[in-house]
């Protein structure tokens, strides 16, 4: 079972590094969400489902949504509005 935790921590480390190093800001936000989701699985493994639910909803969902909207506001993320 320790292997699962090690794997999750590895995923988190890789995703965190990706969030730091990726040049594309939207991809960095997605990597940030991956860190939170892996952390929430880790919380389930540590038998803290309440905290896991909070981490998934707030860390994985809301924070990345707010970051993505902030990118939009800063003009770092353009939506191609050519279709329709």
């Amino acid at each position: 079972m320790m292997m699962l935790a090690a794997l999750l921590v590895l995923i988190m480390l890789i995703a965190a590094l990706a969030a730091l190093l990726l040049r594309n800001a939207v991809a960095a936000v997605a990597a940030f969400a991956v860190v939170s989701l892996a952390l929430s699985v880790l919380f389930v493994w540590l038998r803290a489902p309440d905290v896991a639910l909070t981490e998934a909803a707030v860390g994985g969902g809301l924070s990345s949504l707010i970051l993505a909207l902030a990118l939009r506001r800063l003009g770092l993320w353009r939506v191609g509005g050519s279709n329709e």
Binding site: T54, A57, G61, L62, L65
Partner: peptide
């Protein structure tokens, strides 16, 4: 069950968004 006002509230906000 696990969960509550904060978590559910965040899901509700996402649903409205």
């Amino acid at each position: 069950t696990p969960g509550g006002g904060f978590q559910g509230g965040v899901v509700l906000a996402a649903a409205f968004f």
